[in-house]
Structures are given as structure tokens and as C-alpha cells.
Amino acid sequence: MPPQSRPEPSAPPYPGSAPDARLLTEAVTRLRRALRASIRTEYPWETLPMAQVELLQVLAEHSPARIGDLAARQRLATSTVSGLIGQMITSGLVARAVDPADRRASAVTLTEAGQAQLDAWARAHEHRLDTALGALDEADRSAVHDALPALFRLAEQLDDTMTQA
């Protein structure tokens, strides 16, 4: 069955839902699934679970950070983040040290190895997306490019909504 480039809007899945929201949900889900599957096929060295990648991304932006703060940012249980951080310490991707703001607590920082792994992960995804974008016609590439600012604003809106919840 050939892939559908743009599903046609159908009846909303629940009362009050917008077809655009449903289609965007489908598009984001398909993009994540395709990237996750292709990265393991084309770059077999890439074995980091997505939860660890997302923690590395947060630490690249907000480091040092307490485990509780990481858990809140990722909307995960503290015990889950603590377990992931333990695995990442063992792998040398992050380090735990005394929190300079509160000597009774510990903070996690990204190591050079963690930053290098995150950079390699990003380059692999960028290469994969660049190849896929290159296969699109100019109108579709332009549409994707033009949509990027709105997609970033949508992500910020979703983040703002979550922090207010």
C-alpha cells in the first residue's frame, strides 16, 4: 500500500476535537516512529533509549539539574528519572555531584561524552531528515520550512499549558 502524503480529515475522534489537531497528532506520531525506526537501521551504533536522549537534551539546556527538577520537566516519576540517570552515569553520559546551591542535594551534569553522544544523535537525525526533505518537491519543502516557526510556537504553547497545569 503506497504511503498517504496527507490523510483526508474525517469525523473527529471525540466531540469537540478539530480535524487539524487529529492530523497533526498523526503526523507527529508518524514522524517520531519513522525517525526512531530508521535511526536504528541506518545508524546501528545508536542505541540510546529515547528517554535517555530526552534527558540529555534537557541537561544540554539546563545543567546542572536536580533529579526532581528533571522529573518535573519530563513529567516522569522521580524514581524513573533516578533509574535512567543511574544508567547514564554508568555509561559515562552524565555525572552527579553536590549541588552548589544546596550542599545537601546532588545535581546532574552532562559530561563531554554525553554531549558528544547527543551531538552524534542530532547529526544522524538531521542527516536522515535532510535526505527525506531532499526527496520532496520544492512546494512541499517550502511548506515544511514555512511551518517551522508556527510549530515552534505550538510547542511553546503546549509547554506553557503543561507548566500551568
Rank of each mutant, 00 (worst) to 15 (best):
P9K: 14
I39N: 00
T111P: 10
T161N: 11
A105F: 12
L158K: 05
D119W: 04
V58M: 04
G68R: 12
E46L: 09
L48A: 04
Q4P: 13
T131I: 07
R141Q: 15
R32I: 05
V108Y: 01
Q52I: 00
G92A: 05
E61G: 04
D102N: 15
R73Y: 11
A60R: 08
A107I: 11
Q157F: 08
P44A: 09
R22A: 11
P13K: 05
T80F: 04
S10W: 14
A107W: 13
E46Y: 07
Y14K: 10
Q4A: 12
R103K: 15
P2N: 07
A132S: 03
L76K: 09
L110K: 04
A107Y: 13
S17T: 06
A155K: 09
P15Q: 12
L48E: 02
P64Q: 13
T47V: 10
Q57F: 02
L24H: 10
T78L: 04
A155M: 09
L35N: 03
A105W: 11
E8K: 13
D160I: 04
L48T: 00
G86N: 12
D20H: 14
H127R: 09
A51N: 06
L136I: 14
A51V: 13
G134I: 02
P149I: 02
P3L: 06
Y14H: 11
E112G: 13
P19D: 04
M50C: 04
L31H: 10
S142T: 15
Q87C: 08
